[in-house]
């Protein structure tokens, strides 16, 4: 009887600790108060953030790429994630959200109802964005069409279906500090924050956290075949590329060998092409200045 009491007490304590540790760590409301978004600036944030690339319908072309009804499926080692509707529809999308709710989602990965988002939504990078960029982004996204589309749920095995546990993931991996200290501040901001390059170009550990020690050193392709390339200035990465080569690649999709970007990088190139040339230059300079690392083994 006594043993059972003890076990019950331990379980209760464990449960309470879990509940406490996995609580959403909300953004301070004061950070957003009084900010008014600028949709023109937000259009640039939208491009570097690559929001559309995951949230438009599969195979959307041209204007249809601004219809952010979601529905694309992303296969990962943890299950298949379905992109949600982030169009301006007030009920099915995010049109009804306040600036604060939107910023809390993008910077902290927390939904308006207080649930954790899965890090397939790259808030692990977005958390390094400025609040003013996020508010500008919301102002721009409010100008995009409302899409009345309901998507199917994520297809995840049971342990990952429980969102509360993501609080622990965030405790371990969500970090808004800069990763590599370089003199190229603008490039660093774009790459590590809104550009979220590391989400694909850095390997992840068993729990799906990005490995900061193998930062941008390439990774297996989560959807199966091939590898995402090493983009550090190592001989296995971009050592042979000049800054001009990188900028040309961001504009045209052609490598110095005149091979072309393929797969999901094609959408990234389209987004980079919309940015001011100084931003492409800043990204190139940042990539040439980070530590050179050999290909990540896994």
């Amino acid at each position: 009887m006594r043993l059972r009491n003890k076990a019950f007490f331990a379980a209760l304590l464990g449960g309470a600790a879990f509940w406490f540790l996995t609580q959403p760590d909300n953004l301070d409301t004061a950070l957003v108060a009084g900010l008014i978004g600028d949709p023109a600036k937000g259009a640039q944030v939208f491009a570097i953030g690559g929001c559309a690339s995951c949230h438009y319908a599969k195979d959307a072309k041209g204007e249809a790429r601004l219809m952010l009804g979601g529905g694309q499926a992303f296969a990962t080692p943890f299950g298949t994630f379905i992109a949600p509707n982030i169009s301006s529809d007030p009920d099915l999308g995010i049109g009804g959200w306040t600036n604060y709710e939107f910023a809390n989602a993008v910077l902290r990965g927390i939904s308006p109802s207080g649930q954790h988002y899965y890090p397939a939504f790259p808030f692990g990078s977005y958390t390094r964005m400025t609040v003013s960029d996020v508010v500008d982004l919301k102002a721009y996204m409010d100008t995009l069409p409302a899409v009345a589309q309901v998507n199917i749920a994520h297809e995840l095995p049971l342990p990952f279906r429980l969102r509360r546990g993501l609080g622990l993931w965030k405790m371990l991996f969500l970090d808004d500090r800069k990763v590599a200290e370089t003199i190229e501040m603008r490039g660093q901001y774009l790459v590590e924050g809104p550009g979220h390059c590391a989400e694909c170009h850095s390997p992840r550990n068993m729990l799906g956290g990005m490995d900061a020690n193998r930062w941008l050193a390439g990774a297996p392709n989560p959807s199966g075949k091939g590898r995402i390339p090493n983009i550090t200035p190592h001989s296995q990465g971009i050592a042979d590329w000049s800054v001009d080569d990188l900028v040309y690649y961001f504009e045209t999709g052609f490598t110095p060998e005149f091979d072309t970007a393929g797969s999901t990088m094609v959408a990234v190139i389209e987004n980079l092409g919309v940015l001011p040339v100084e931003d492409r230059l800043a990204i190139a300079r940042y990539l040439k200045s980070i530590p050179a690392l050999p290909d990540a083994s896994k």
Binding site: N221, K225, P229, G262, T264, V266
Partner: peptide, 17 residues
């Protein structure tokens, strides 16, 4: 000419091993 390369490689060519 060059613009047509990416269009096919986006959906039809896998990344290098």
């Amino acid at each position: 000419v060059a613009g047509t390369c990416k269009a096919c490689h986006e959906n039809y060519r896998a990344p290098e091993e």
